[in-house]
Simulated scan of single mutants.
Amino acid sequence: MKTISTFLLVILTTVGISYGQQKLAPVSGHYKDFQLASALPNVQRAWMDTVKYPPAEYGNSIVYLLVKPHYLSEDQVKKLSESIAFPANSSDQVRKELDYLLMLQDKRTPEQIKRVEYLGDIGYWPSINMVPSHAAYEENLKHLFFEGRELMGENIHAGNFPKVSKLLQGVMQDMRLMEFTIKYKLLRPRPYHLEPGLNPLTKINSPSFASGHTLWAFVQAFTWSEIVPERKDAFISLAEEIRRSREVMGIHYPSDNEASRQVAYKMLQYYFENPAFKKDLQEAVTEWNSKASKFIRN
């Protein structure tokens, strides 16, 4: 009887576990509409193609080019960084995107500004996590769990879920490396470098393409959706809000954001080729399933 019970327990704990089955939703909405316009240079706006992100505005994020990937391989980082490109600055697509950002700027409300600036302040940095004595160490770990806390309550944090934390830290190390490899390879100017009518809510000291906020939002949404699949729609919806917030702020083109969504999904596909990721994911899922009911917000 004990053998049968053990066998049944194994069956019950393995049936229904199917990781890496997420599908990327097709491009839609204004992201799809803008892709219908030409991405090729337009000679009438040729001056725009001479503009690159100003070197004088580079920040210290360039040091992430020295970071080693965690779950990705260096070859995968290279392939991903070479798999995407942005439309020409002078293109009809970019002109439409800039006009869209001007429209969003004209319609910004105080409530909207408060929310997008709050989202803009969220960011996990692997370098800070390496120094427990750092003044921002605890806040940084709090940001690591932003999506989980936002959807499931303040008890969703690294202290209660160390295995989930380990997984997210690895994913975010890859994300930062991926983000800045692409940015400093392509040096896309920010929208406000091309459109003087834009008054961004902040200015960012790194190139525009692709969006780092959107990349982490979707990488984490996809990862959380593997841990808590029943909340997948909520995680994706939150990631969508985060990417659109960058447009409302006037600091990213929609094409920055769609590219980041695509890269995040490709990262997930690569992860499931990595035994270390699959092991860490399984441990995170086991931890979540054994502890979440005690901490999750109803």
Results as ranks from 00 to 15, higher is better:
86 F>R: 06
194 L>R: 06
220 Q>G: 13
136 A>K: 10
247 E>G: 03
27 V>P: 04
149 R>M: 13
260 S>Q: 07
274 N>W: 08
226 E>S: 03
282 Q>W: 06
140 N>Y: 06
99 D>M: 02
112 Q>S: 12
205 N>C: 03
135 A>D: 06
288 W>G: 00
191 P>Q: 08
150 E>C: 00
252 H>P: 03
211 S>W: 07
124 Y>C: 00
279 K>T: 15
205 N>M: 06
293 S>K: 06
120 G>S: 05
185 K>T: 14
202 T>V: 10
297 R>I: 08
55 P>C: 08
16 G>K: 00
192 Y>E: 12
247 E>M: 15
159 G>A: 13
284 A>S: 12
267 M>F: 04
124 Y>S: 04
79 K>N: 10
289 N>R: 13
96 K>S: 12
85 A>W: 04
209 F>L: 09
135 A>Q: 11
88 A>P: 08
125 W>M: 03
258 E>N: 12
5 S>Q: 10
243 R>F: 07
5 S>N: 05
87 P>A: 10
124 Y>E: 07
77 V>G: 05
136 A>T: 04
25 A>L: 01
5 S>P: 00
249 M>C: 12
123 G>D: 14
188 R>A: 09
265 Y>A: 03
203 K>G: 00
88 A>H: 04
221 A>P: 12
294 K>Y: 13
244 R>P: 00
274 N>S: 09
73 S>K: 12
215 L>A: 05
280 D>R: 04
170 G>V: 02
44 Q>F: 14
293 S>I: 09
9 L>H: 04
108 R>G: 06
35 Q>K: 14
285 V>D: 01
16 G>D: 07
85 A>K: 02
9 L>Y: 05
129 N>S: 14
161 F>S: 07
122 I>T: 04
291 K>L: 14
218 F>L: 01
51 V>I: 13
50 T>H: 01
196 P>I: 13
96 K>G: 14
118 Y>P: 00
70 H>C: 03
42 N>Y: 09
107 K>L: 09
113 I>R: 13
217 A>T: 07
58 Y>V: 02
144 L>E: 13
69 P>C: 03
37 A>V: 12
290 S>T: 11
225 S>Q: 01
136 A>Y: 02
59 G>F: 04
187 L>S: 13
1 M>W: 02
37 A>L: 15
180 F>P: 11
110 P>Q: 11
127 S>N: 09
7 F>M: 06
3 T>C: 01
